[in-house]
Design a protein around this nucleic acid. Structure first.
Lengths: 112, 112
DNA sequence: AGCCTACATGTAGGTGTTCTACATGTAGGC
DNA sequence: GCCTACATGTAGAACACCTACATGTAGGCT
């Protein structure tokens, strides 16, 4: 599967991150793997994008985190706050609107 | 209809511009109107975005332009080059891939 | 005359999210 | 001793978009 141009993700990253955290808390590395998995391998988001973005979302109040040590390795595990759930719902509807808008321009149905 | 967040357009602008020029040449102002129309009013792209973008696309070889005077007003009319048509096809398939990727993460089908 | 809206193009400067590249460290297999 | 996977993080650059401004014509209303 060809990679999507990650530059095009601008503005949709938050939605993706909130979405993979919806069903269970995950740490950064696992989030990256989850994105790859869910996208069928199309989404290879670099660590330099994910970690700062997670901090941003935590500061915004959408995520909360705590440290854990598993197998001698330290992890920071993030979970959705209730504000995060609300934000996710908003991101989802914004995405649907966005996709349908772009679609309507890119592949217009012939009117006649 | 609620506006889409135009900031999220980052990376998809070229596709939109090439797409509205597919069936007929248009000048900048008309392009903005065409985008509004096709999107059902959701797409209000500011002139400060469109005009520089058109120049960028012309420099890339995807568009060609010529001046015209209509009703005392000067217009720069853009048309797709053949390279532009090829680029548009690429943008379309990139968009489909992108939308399906984001969709698969944002609204995963339950596997069980 | 004066004002407003629609039409029409363009530039300057700022913003912000993303990228690339680097830095650091543990665990475990070969 | 080396490599890969696991794991987090920072610094700095890139760049496409935004806001705000600048300029000018045409035409309607008062």
């Amino acid at each position: 599967m060809k990679d999507v141009n990650t530059d095009a993700l601008r503005g949709h990253m938050d939605a993706l991150l909130l979405s993979v955290l919806e069903s269970e808390p995950l740490h950064g590395y696992a989030i990256i793997e989850a994105l790859q998995e869910r996208s069928g391998g199309a989404l290879n988001v670099p660590t330099g994008t994910v970690y700062p973005a997670l901090r941003r979302l935590e500061q915004a109040g959408y995520l909360a985190s705590e440290w854990a040590t598993v197998g001698g390795r330290k992890r920071r595990t993030y979970r959705l706050t209730s504000a995060g759930r609300t934000a996710l719902a908003g991101e989802r509807s914004a995405w649907r609107r966005f996709a349908s808008t772009i679609g309507s321009v890119l592949e217009p149905r012939p009117t006649k």
